[in-house]
Design a protein around this nucleic acid. Structure first.
Lengths: 100, 100
DNA sequence: GGTCTATGTTGACAGACGTCTATGTCTCGG
DNA sequence: CCGAGACATAGACGTCTGTCAACATAGACC
């Protein structure tokens, strides 16, 4: 892996390297129609709404989730390529799990 | 992904979410016998030796690399499960690359 | 228009992180 | 046993990160 790839990959991993954001990705993926609004997601955490909003922004800026406003609600959806990212994370999880 | 898995996976991703550490992993993997000492790795970066040592420590504490002293040198080797981690990273890299 | 509800933004703060210099530790050769 | 080389550790420093309370924005409904 050359320097360029490392510097592209690192910010992506950084965006994923937080338990709240990992669960957000997972919750969105498993939600009905594979999309969810903030009011669906916030109750899953013992965090304030602005904090959840902040994490969603980080995921959005990393290109992992998309936003769409429909009426009062803003729906979050996984970016198409994020599914493959989640697959890779499953492999990681399995690898970690296998050593426990 | 439940809370437990997220909190196990996040620190692992955190350890990987740094361009220097990604390149360290890659350099070790591609080196002769798949192991390398610090004096092999340091010249690849414009960083001080203690800084490289610090990053190796982070990787070691995350369970991604192993250490072995042989004489004056300390050789670093990828932990067996780290190969699968690198595979997953390749998928990530390909996914990111495909969208450019 | 006014008000309510859903969400984003700002500013502040403690703690973590990446980097350096200085110093310590361990090993080998003489 | 002493000096040199390879590496780790400690401490300091600026920056980034996660969190919150307070405020701003934007749509919906009366």
């Amino acid at each position: 892996m050359d320097r360029g790839r490392a510097e592209v990959l690192a910010p992506l991993l950084k965006a994923l390297a937080d338990p709240v954001r990992l669960r957000l990705m997972s919750l969105i993926a498993c939600h009905t129609s594979a999309e969810a609004c903030v009011c669906d997601l916030t109750p899953a955490f013992e965090l304030s709404q602005p904090t959840v909003s902040h994490h969603l922004k980080v995921l959005h800026e990393a290109g992992l989730v998309e936003r769409e406003r429909r009426g009062v609600w803003i729906y979050y959806r996984l970016h198409p390529r994020a599914s493959r990212v989640l697959d890779a994370l499953s492999d990681l999880d399995a690898t970690v799990g296998a050593s426990r």
